[in-house]
Amino acid sequence: MSHDHLETHDGDYSHHVVPISKLITTFILLIVLMAATVFASTWHLGDAWYFSVFANLLALGIAVTKALLVISYFMGAKWASNLSKMFIIGGFGWFTTMYFMFLDYGTRQWEPIKGWERDASTALPRFKDLDENPEAQDVGQQPASP
């Protein structure tokens, strides 16, 4: 992480021309992988939950592979400076920390389906209703002050 500034004048690492042959190979691989993921999605191995997990992991794995190809070759991350690589890894890594939220969703009761249908007689007025029916505002709140 500690680049001495004096050293940064030496290297010419930001200017690497990716050869066309590599770009073409990458493109072909990407198309093949896309076909593979479409094909894999048609499989139905069984109704057990682990088949579903496997199928999802497979689809995600193919997507990650494609993403790595794009990042490494099209975006040239393979030849990027260490600093750029740090941002690439850090950025994509950090977004997965948000999945810490699943600790919550995995350990609490969540029954949002019940009562989804609005009962007009008891529900508080929605702000969208107020435009059509200003009298609805009287439920539990004062009118806005002038």
Binding site: L103, D104, Y105, G106, T107, R108
Partner: peptide, 10 residues
């Protein structure tokens, strides 16, 4: 909030 108590502890 209705966050799980388990995650609250963490």
């Amino acid at each position: 909030s209705s966050q799980s108590m388990y995650q609250g502890l963490v």
